[in-house]
Design a protein around this nucleic acid. Structure first.
Lengths: 197, 197
DNA sequence: CATCGGCGATGACATTTGTCATCGCCGCCC
DNA sequence: GGGCGGCGATGACAAATGTCATCGCCGATG
């Protein structure tokens, strides 16, 4: 089955896989929750999930699918090969991690390898994920930094998270230092690049 | 011909179009300059361009292709249906503007309509583009705001653009007001949402 | 020819942001 | 039991950011 929010990309991928005689697309979904529902209903051999989806991100969906449909292998197909994404995908039990800018023919090849029991990960990406180390941000730091992505002021964030302004400043400050950034914007950029948010 | 930087999406779209008996993909490109070169060489009936591409964005490439290969109709296929993108695409002479989250079958239909001499634009998007009005930012304001997206400080931007710090502050301030934002981060967000950068 | 807008700059000012020291309360782990 | 780290808070301080008034130089436009 195939989960991807952009209709045109989803349809195109379905057509790509339809060319392969040994592969059949048995279900499609456009959101995280929908992916979960479809997976439970059709119980496919493979679930191919995008990460950026409305409702529930593909990695969370992957974990749920692994839990509820254990015989189904989950593969992640994403635009952004961020180290933190790869790490979280692996922890969620994914069998493969593919980026959309690799050549199209690698998709069917990867599916066959997963069906054969292998795990498929871009070697360069794996190295990056390992060398980058784990997410250094504490849960609260992540939350506060995540609340800052849209340009909210300190007092906005404090209100939204029910914290004092000083506390918000402290979390932002430590997030800035842990990401080796010079201000919150750089911190957000760097954290997103690593897949830490 | 097909220009799209993500290999897997490009291949999938090619396969989707390959299903249509009256459509043939005669060339592929992964970057803006490559798209231009391929268009000049194969002189296709239609060039289907993504906007976000390395080297040269799809809208600029569209203008160049229209200029150098006048018999070729250009269609834009993009992830982001931003009003400013649509406006610029039309000014560059595009015959169609499609977003990737519409259903896959609309792609072939749109191609046929363009071949029939029609222009294809999502009505909702057209309304948004017209009601949003034109880009209110002056070229310099756009440049300065664009230099602020990555979290650069005032003095970074001043150095990069060979301006005094005070001038940079003035431009940012007026960009913030024109976008009705509260700080530069919100201004960047809003401007990007509108396709003004 | 006067006006308007864009460009570039300066100086002054208020506000926001980032840093640091310090505190108390937990829970965990050696 | 002591140490460590996460959580939440306060106060003080320095630095960065945003605003405003004002200036001069252009080129276009009425």
């Amino acid at each position: 089955m195939l989960a991807e929010d952009q209709g045109m990309v989803r349809g195109a991928l379905a057509s790509l896989l339809g060319l392969e005689p040994d592969i059949e697309v048995v279900g499609e979904a456009a959101t995280g929750p929908e992916a979960l529902a479809v997976a439970e209903r059709v119980r496919p051999d493979i679930a191919l999930l995008d990460i950026e989806m409305p409702g529930m991100d593909g990695i969370t969906a992957a974990g749920e699918i692994r839990r509820r449909v254990p015989e189904c292998q989950v593969m992640i197909l994403t635009t952004f090969g961020r180290p933190g994404y790869l790490r979280r995908a692996m922890e969620a039990g994914a069998a493969a991690f593919l980026v959309k800018d690799s050549p199209a023919r690698e998709l069917a090849a990867a599916i066959r390898r997963v069906l054969g029991g292998e795990r498929v990960i871009d070697p360069g990406l794996a190295a990056a994920a390992l060398s980058a180390g784990p997410n250094p941000l504490s849960p609260r730091e992540r939350e506060v930094l995540g609340a800052a992505v849209d340009g909210s002021t300190i007092s906005d964030i404090a209100d939204r998270l029910h914290l004092s302004e000083g506390t918000v400043r402290n979390y932002l400050s430590s997030a800035i230092q842990k990401t080796a950034a010079r201000n919150r914007i750089e911190a957000v950029q760097k954290a997103q690049l690593q897949g830490w948010l």
